[in-house]
C-alpha cells in the first residue's frame, strides 16, 4: 500500500505547494516561477525520452519550436484563436517527433545523438530561411488581445501563473501515470537491457517511438504555452542552446525521476538568473554544471536521493 500512497501524496503535495506559491511569492519570483513551470514541462517531456526510454536526444529544441511555431504562425498569419492554436502546437510537436523519431530510431547511441542534432539544426535554419513569415532571430510578438483562453487574459500575472501551474500539474500526473503504467515499465526495461526486452517479446521499436511521440507532444505543449503566456515567438528557442538546456535540467534534477525536471529547471533557472546579473557569460555556469554532473553525480539530485534514501521515488 505504501508503494502507492507515498508517491501519490508527494506529487499532490508538490502540486498544492506550487498552487500556494501563487499567493505567497513576491512579484518578481511569481513571474519567474511561471516561466520555470512552463520550462519544467519541456524538461519533463525530455525526461520521458531520456530518463525512461534511455534515448539521449540533442535535438529537443526542434519539438519545443514545433509547438511554439505550430501555435504562433497560425495565430499571427491566419488569425486563429488561442485555444485551437494551442492544440495545434501540441499536435505539431507530436507530428515532428513522430517523423524525426521514425528516421532517427534506425540509428542508436552516438549516431542517434548526431541525427537528432542535425534535424534540429535543419529546423532552426529553416525557420531562419522563411524570414518573411517567422521574422527569424528577431521573432514576433503575439498581440495581447489574442492571448485569451476562455475569456481569461493570459498576460495577467495571476492568470499566467495559474495557467502554467495547471499545465505543469496535468503534465506531471500524465508522466506519473505513464511511468507507473505497464508501458512505462517496459520503457525502463528497454533502457536497462534492450536485448532482454526484445527477447521477452516486446516490440522495442514501437515502445521507443511511442516514448518519442509523447515526449514531442509534451515539449510541443510547453512551447505553445510559452508562446501564449509570454507572447513572444523567436528562432532562439530552436537553437542548439535550447536542446542542451533540457538535457542539463534533467541531468541536474535526476534522469528518470518525475520531479527531477522541475527541480533541475528551477535550480538552473535561478542560478543563471543570478549570475546573469554579474556577467554576460552566464552560460559558463551551465557548462561547468554539465561537466561537474557527468563527473560527480551522473544520477542527478533526485537520482542520488533515490539511491541513498528513498527507493520508492518514482
Amino acid at each position: 500500500m505504501t508503494g502507492l500512497m507515498k508517491p501519490g501524496a508527494l506529487h499532490v503535495g508538490v502540486a498544492l505547494l506550487l498552487l500556494a506559491a501563487n499567493f505567497l511569492l513576491p512579484e518578481y519570483h511569481h513571474g519567474a516561477m511561471a516561466r520555470v513551470l512552463t520550462l519544467a514541462v519541456f524538461a519533463m517531456g525530455y525526461n520521458v525520452m531520456f530518463g525512461y526510454a534511455g534515448l539521449l536526444s540533442l535535438g529537443h529544441a526542434l519539438f519545443f519550436a514545433a509547438g511554439l511555431y505550430g501555435m504562433g504562425l497560425p495565430m499571427q498569419h491566419l488569425g486563429l484563436a488561442a485555444e485551437p492554436a494551442f492544440l495545434l502546437g501540441i499536435f505539431s510537436g507530436a507530428l515532428v517527433a513522430a517523423v524525426v523519431g521514425a528516421l532517427a530510431l534506425r540509428t542508436a547511441g552516438v549516431a542517434f545523438m548526431i541525427v537528432t542534432l542535425m534535424f534540429a539544426q535543419a529546423g532552426y535554419l529553416t525557420i531562419l530561411y522563411f524570414l518573411e513569415y517567422t521574422r527569424g532571430d528577431e521573432g514576433f510578438v503575439i498581440a495581447r488581445e489574442a492571448r485569451t483562453v476562455f475569456g481569461l487574459d493570459l498576460a495577467a500575472p495571476e492568470v499566467r501563473y495559474l495557467a502554467a501551474w495547471l499545465l505543469f500539474t496535468v503534465a506531471m500526473f500524465v508522466v506519473l501515470a505513464l511511468v507507473r503504467s505497464p508501458a512505462g515499465r517496459v520503457l525502463v526495461a528497454i533502457r536497462e537491457n534492450e536485448e532482454r526486452a526484445r527477447m521477452l517479446g516486446y516490440d522495442v521499436a514501437r515502445y521507443k517511438l511511442g516514448a518519442i511521440v509523447v515526449s514531442g507532444a509534451l515539449c510541443g505543449a510547453a512551447g505553445a504555452a510559452y508562446g501564449l503566456l509570454f507572447g513572444y515567438v523567436g528562432a532562439t528557442f530552436a537553437s542548439v542552446q535550447y536542446s542542451i538546456l533540457p538535457l542539463l535540467w534533467v541531468l541536474l534534477g535526476g534522469a528518470g525521476t518525475v520531479l527531477g525536471p522541475l527541480l533541475g529547471a528551477t535550480f538552473m533557472f535561478y542560478l543563471i538568473d543570478l549570475s546573469s546579473g554579474i556577467t554576460d557569460a552566464y552560460m559558463l555556469i551551465a557548462g561547468a554544471a554539465l561537466v561537474a554532473l557527468t563527473l560527480f553525480a551522473p544520477a542527478g539530485l533526485l537520482g542520488e536521493l533515490r539511491r541513498r534514501a528513498c527507493p520508492w521515488l518514482p
Partner: peptide, 14 residues
C-alpha cells in the same frame, strides 16, 4: 558528449 558540451560552454564563455 555531455561532458564536452559542458567544456564547449566553459571555453566559449570564458
Amino acid at each position: 558528449i555531455v561532458a564536452t558540451i559542458g567544456l564547449l560552454y566553459i571555453v566559449q564563455q570564458a
